[in-house]
Simulated assay, not measured.
Amino acid sequence: MSDHDTSAQDQILGIALVLASTVVFSLSGVLTKAIVSDTWTIACWRGLFGAVLIAAYVVWQRPKGHGSTSLRLGWRGWLLASVGSLASLAFIAAFKMTYVANVAIIYATVPFAAAFLEWALMRQKVRHPTMVAAAICVAGVVVMVGTGVGSVNLLGDFVAVLMMLGNALYMVLIRVFSKTPVVLAGAASALQLFVIGWIFTDPLDVSLHDGLLLILFGVCFAIAVILWTEGTKLITAAESGLLGSAEVPLAILMAWIFLAEIPPLASFIGGVMVLGAILWHANRDYRQAKSVLQ
């Protein structure tokens, strides 16, 4: 098989993995709001189960006979982990302080921040279809925010913006530090939240209801991180962020179903615009890759 064929297969796999991670991530808002415990407790528990499961995955995937080499993070890995920790903490806090729709809408701007950072750090050219789809996403976000959804809680929205910037930087660093065991960095990030969370709160002081939800949250987080990290390594950061924007309509839908949280009608219209752009972009890439394989 030629290198071109392998690249096309990687493109398809990357798209599938990132989209799958998005479906899991879309449950984050519902789980965060359903848990009564504070932000640090949630971060601590999610960090514990996330670290254990992600680390187990890394060890299982590690090539035989490599000893501890592939388990060394180095300063690049710990930098990546720290950026991920801050982004995750802001992610949880934002959901606690504002609507799920607000966080999902602001997260939709990740592709633009990621594209800018990728151009700045790697001089990576953004493809024309990605720019077109991103522009449609901007229009969808404008439709949603224009109704005043973003003004419900300014502090929560500001934290969501920090979350967005952190995630954009994280995605770009995955590609910049291509030789770093990025999935292990995800485990280290989760472990950081567990240790720091234990200092700031008493994670054992939770109800049975919260405990079960916290375990579920940790498991979902680990699955999403593994899928997202592996997928992002196979496609550009801008594409990964764009596909991840599917979380916008999915998260709003989940919040509507499970929390009875209903944003304005314009939010649904904007969400459809965003999802439509994402599906168009993903379908276009899939057809191109499929034609190459044939």
Rank of each mutant, 00 (worst) to 15 (best):
G140D: 01
I92G: 01
V52W: 06
W45S: 01
R72K: 15
V145H: 08
A55N: 02
I35M: 00
V172K: 03
V142W: 01
A114W: 07
T147N: 11
V172N: 05
P111F: 00
R127W: 09
K96G: 06
F158Q: 04
A51C: 08
W60G: 00
W119D: 00
G140I: 06
Q61R: 15
A168E: 01
I42E: 05
L117K: 02
K125T: 08
K125G: 00
I106C: 10
A55F: 08
L165W: 07
F112Y: 09
V58Y: 14
G84Y: 05
T109R: 02
P129V: 07
T69G: 13
V152Y: 10
G74C: 09
S151T: 14
P111L: 07
L117V: 06
T32H: 02
L165T: 07
D157T: 06
R123I: 07
S88W: 01
F49I: 13
A94V: 02
V142L: 13
Q124H: 15
A87W: 08
G67N: 05
M144K: 01
T69P: 07
L154V: 15
V161R: 05
I92P: 00
N153H: 13
N153W: 13
T130Y: 13
N153R: 14
T32M: 01
E118D: 12
A135C: 14
Y57P: 02
T41Y: 02
M163W: 12
E118G: 06
L169S: 13
T39Q: 06
